[in-house]
Write a protein that binds this DNA or RNA. Sequence first.
DNA 1: CTCTTCATGATACCGCCGTATCAACATCAT
DNA 2: ATGATGTTGATACGGCGGTATCATGAAGAG
Lengths: 225, 225
Amino acid sequence: MKRPGHDGSDDEGQRAEHMPKRVDHEERRAQIAEALIRVAGRRGLHAVGMRDVAAEAGVSLRLVQYYFQTKEKLLFYGLQHLTDRFTARVGARLRDAGPEPGPRATVEALLLASLPTDEESRTFHLLYSSYSILSVTDEALAAQPFIDSPDAAENALTGLLERAQAEGLADPDADARTEAISLLAMTATMGTSILVGQRTPQSAVAVLDHHLDRVFRPGPRPPAA
Amino acid sequence: MKRPGHDGSDDEGQRAEHMPKRVDHEERRAQIAEALIRVAGRRGLHAVGMRDVAAEAGVSLRLVQYYFQTKEKLLFYGLQHLTDRFTARVGARLRDAGPEPGPRATVEALLLASLPTDEESRTFHLLYSSYSILSVTDEALAAQPFIDSPDAAENALTGLLERAQAEGLADPDADARTEAISLLAMTATMGTSILVGQRTPQSAVAVLDHHLDRVFRPGPRPPAA
DNA sequence: CTCTTCATGATACCGCCGTATCAACATCAT
DNA sequence: ATGATGTTGATACGGCGGTATCATGAAGAG
């Protein structure tokens, strides 16, 4: 879709004939996508244009067209890049939690990574929300695979809670999936509240901790009646 | 502020001389605002133009300009109208709950009214989310008074829960405000999940009911330890 | 009736934006 | 050198969208 020869993956041995390739296409695309993310994080996804992205990336408009033929493709790639970066960020947070973190520490790392506390997470939250809202009325965007990220998070969190229950660290009477859904839902909305200045990160953490205290209480409670 | 006589502000006594006015300004503005809401609900707020609104309202573009000089004013008014209509809708739901509904019925009516289950609530949820996201990067929109609607809801819900506690209908050990925040936050995110087709209204109601069951349990539990 | 005021409709203007095209130049492989 | 590739620049076009202008219609007051 980009070049007469190959585009970006299977050019191992065959193309060694002649081809001066000084730059990594994927790298350039990532550069431009990050420029898109930066400018969209500042001015809003709706207000970003090809020329803005080019200027932010320090390249010519022509080059943006060269690597992404259309704006739609640029937006799709930007969304993919955004989720990739966020996934990496969550992974880093988990590693920061120690070599063998307890279930609660893991869950906390997962949830807190989603709250917009610094520039990067703020931008992520804003843009991911923007894309989600757009996907409601844009079917091309809705067909994009980013939609299932929440499902993955829900399944992961459910698994963590079930494991904690099996280890006797969490309330065995709780329904793991329901609690996972609840925690993620609260985190998402409170993230937006932080974004619009309605709530502080501290208060959001307090609410989340309250529910973690409720779920992560060891031992089987005496079953009611 | 919906009188045929004056429309804005400073035309109090002087102009009472002669003035043929056949239509109610405020009524026309509401009519156009609802056209805006309809078309924005279908194609997305970002895709709405003045011409679309005019066509949807069955009037000329000039008329839209006549009542709202600028698009920004139209958007602001549309937002106001949207929240007004939603408030009325919630009120109707509360009245439907019976003449003297219990606290739990009231809370349920409040929360369920926010879930996008029919066209109207779906449109409301979509547009309110769109406005919220826009307000992050548009300070003129952020200055708009619609931001405090969530605070009002939070306070109202907190009051209801406290009343239920006082009447012995809800867990007295719970923190009313924390639970109110949690319930509203879960409702909001799950509403969006319904909007994007990720979750069914039934599953959202199930999660909410689970938490209502938790909070609305009568009598003081035997305090732990 | 006529004048004033409210209200409406058609059209034009202007700028931005996505996209396309053409020309040039640098660099590296052969 | 030759040629393919990466990069830039300028420029243009077609459309759309918000705003502005003009002229006209409808209705009550004198």
